[in-house]
């Protein structure tokens, strides 16, 4: 079990996280944030493996990743 959370207000919609996700579960939201961008979101969290590739690629440090069994 893993979970990624996005600080949506920081997202600039660059899609680098979406490109990096090996499970293809990141999509850009249809709504816009305060900066006017479509922020990234996860479509199916149950498929997340917690690899943190999205967070590694994110230029705006939007993403926090949590994983089962990690302290």
């Amino acid at each position: 079990m893993a979970k990624v959370s996005f600080r949506e207000e920081l997202c600039k919609g660059c899609e680098l996280c979406k490109q990096a996700c090996p499970k293809g579960i990141i999509e850009m939201g249809s709504h816009i944030n305060a900066m006017g961008y479509h922020p990234a979101q996860v479509t199916d969290m149950s498929k997340c493996i917690g690899c943190a590739f999205c967070a590694w690629m994110c230029p705006d440090v939007v993403i926090t990743v949590e994983k089962e069994g990690k302290a």
Binding site: A2, K12, L16, A52, P59, D60, I63, T64, E68
Partner: peptide, 26 residues
């Protein structure tokens, strides 16, 4: 669940002014 990735302490909370997709942030 434990945190495996979060904002490092040596960064302030200041939002980057860089353009979308600019690698300076990384």
């Amino acid at each position: 669940m434990g945190v495996v990735f979060e904002r490092p302490k040596s960064l302030t909370q200041q939002k980057f002014h860089y353009c979308p997709g600019c690698h300076h942030g990384i």
